[in-house]
């Protein structure tokens, strides 16, 4: 890994050295709104650029769309949070290999009145069953994003068919995390969100975290180099340099060091 890092750095330095190639020393990372909205990239990318001269351009969309864009070859690195979909992506030969980068967790936020009586619960399946039983409004992203996929998995585990309730108490906004939070808060609905987005979200109203701490709410982020064998335009060396840095001790420390109001948002867990 260190060797790979050096190669990547060497390649980056070579590219940066050639004035004619200066414009080319950037990569496109297809990522998710949660990493963007939380401000993590604003924290990490300047450090990386300082070190390597490589500019990282982040396209922040839902995980579903990010994977789709990467499949079209419109990106060098995929940095998302939907492990099964990521593994399918690699298995299909679209990506080179997948590494865990960091995790945070999902939480369910709700109005302080707590109409479903789930506040303080650490059992997400039971809490979801209660919300369904109470018919309390629940705002889902419904956009095939990583968060949406995780949420649907949890409903399934709780044995609830949300499709049948869609349009009733189960409301699919078809939007990003921020838009869904804006909508959900306004309609008094429960919302599942990643903790990082929630902490940095500016329009919480009087909302509080209702459900947290269940291991099932664990939210793993992975990073993948888009396969240059399949998409020749992929800047493999530069992309790998970024991946190597994110997975390095320095990158991992930088992730751990990102805090809002003293609260750590992401927990690095790259394989040693």
């Amino acid at each position: 890994m260190i060797r790979r890092g050096f190669l990547g750095l060497a390649a980056a330095t070579l590219l940066a050295g050639g004035a004619a190639m200066a414009d080319e020393t950037f990569i496109i990372v297809q990522s998710t709104t949660s990493t963007q909205n939380s401000g993590l990239f604003d924290h990490l990318l300047p450090m990386f650029r300082e070190k390597t001269g490589i500019e990282v351009r982040v396209v922040a969309v839902g995980t579903g769309q990010a994977i789709k864009n990467a499949e079209n070859g419109d990106g060098d690195v995929l940095f998302v949070h939907a492990k099964p979909a990521e593994e399918t992506f690699v298995a299909a030969g679209e990506g080179v290999s997948r590494s865990d980068v960091m995790y945070n967790d999902f939480v369910i936020v709700g109005p302080p009145a707590d109409p479903a009586g789930v506040a303080g619960s650490k059992d997400v399946a039971a809490a979801l069953a209660k919300i369904a039983a109470a018919g309390a409004p629940f705002a889902s992203r419904g956009d095939d994003s990583g968060t949406n996929k995780a949420e649907l998995r949890l409903w399934k585990e709780a044995g609830i068919d949300v499709k049948a309730a869609s349009g009733g108490w189960y409301r699919e906004t078809g939007s990003g995390m921020g838009a869904t939070l804006n909508t959900g808060v306004a309609m008094g609905a429960y919302i599942m969100t990643d903790r990082a987005t929630w902490i940095s979200f500016g329009n919480k109203g009087d909302y509080v975290i209702a459900v947290e701490g269940d291991p099932k709410l664990f939210n793993q982020y992975g990073i993948i180099l888009v396969n240059p064998a399949k998409h020749p335009n992929v800047k493999a060396d530069l992309g790998q340099a970024f991946i190597d840095w994110v997975l390095s001790d320095e990158g991992q420390a930088a992730i751990a060091g990102y805090k809002i109001n003293g609260e750590q948002l992401f927990f690095p867990n790259a394989p040693r």
Binding site: N37, R57, V58, V59, A179, N182, F201
Partner: peptide
């Protein structure tokens, strides 16, 4: 454009971003 900071971020995409961050005043 992808709303990439310093590359393709324009007024409207910045507004969309700040809205999604819940920074409604901004």
């Amino acid at each position: 454009g992808g709303n990439i900071n310093h590359v393709t971020r324009v007024m409207t995409t910045a507004i969309a971003l700040e809205t999604s961050k819940g920074n409604l005043e901004l």
